[in-house]
Design a protein around this nucleic acid. Structure first.
Lengths: 128, 128
DNA sequence: GCTTACGTACTCGGATATTGGTTGTCCGAGTTGAGGCGG
DNA sequence: CCGCCTCAACTCGGACAACCAATATCCGAGTACGTAAGC
């Protein structure tokens, strides 16, 4: 049970884009160098963010990525869900008739964490 | 990023032991059947709980597992730590000089969840 | 009746598949901008 | 000066390989209990 590195890459990339001049396109290579990842792998991660509507990409010469307009509203939870998916962290697939009490506890624990992450905006961190 | 099935097995086993007559030894086979796991795999999980001091095992004929005296104090977090380990869910291993702000946010999110799980005792669930 | 030996029913722990997800690479296809060349 | 062509620099997406942890199995070793044999 650990967060994937991909989530870390995604968060750092977003933060880096936020620190760059607005609307400036930044190529994958530059982003990848900064984090010491292979560009192709990072691009895979970034397409997830594109599909989630957080950034947009421009292909062709001088292409790259940049934040979308409403990026200031993006929370940590949004990014995590975009990369790791939205399925519950704990799933009891046993067949004890009624709903699982253990499951319930775990799900509320998860919600505690998500409530916190929901209120952590990237734009807050970007100011520092 | 998901909790492992082993954690689920561990929690269910503990709850089942709590519902059994106190001090009665229960064999792995019976515990495994109930959860539809292989006995050998379950025993591996249970040895972790033994090492964590939550249950104790008796070998030989009529052997098995039973809860230790202070089991009522066992929290969900204890079990999770025993099975999954205590390392942080998120680790930024990048080399950007100062400590990572992202890391800090993630760690506090994790603590939110752990604070909740710390207060969820197995004995509470066992009553139901 | 007491002890000893043995068989049985367990757990314990190491070694070893198997599987699935994460991480990463490779490459062809499509896209855009810039520069050159001919009119 | 304008339009077309081509090239280079990109991103995109799928296919594939490497790796690692979770999951699961197998088996030998140790341990305790019960029973039966022997004295």
């Amino acid at each position: 049970m650990k967060f994937s590195k991909a989530t870390n890459y995604a968060l750092h990339t977003l933060l880096f884009l936020a620190a760059s001049p607005p609307n400036k396109l930044i190529g994958v290579q530059q982003l990848a160098e900064r984090q010491e990842v292979s560009p192709t792998y990072l691009s895979k991660i970034l397409t997830k963010l594109v599909k989630a509507g957080m950034i947009e990409s421009t292909s062709g010469a001088n292409g790259g990525y940049r934040l979308k307009r409403n990026w200031e509203e993006i929370s940590f939870l949004d990014v995590i869900h975009a990369i790791e998916g939205t399925t519950s962290l704990f799933e009891c697939e046993m067949n004890h008739g009624s709903e699982c009490l253990i499951q319930k506890v775990m799900v509320s624990a998860e919600e505690k964490m998500e409530d916190f992450l929901k209120n952590q905006k990237l734009s807050e961190l970007a100011k520092k």
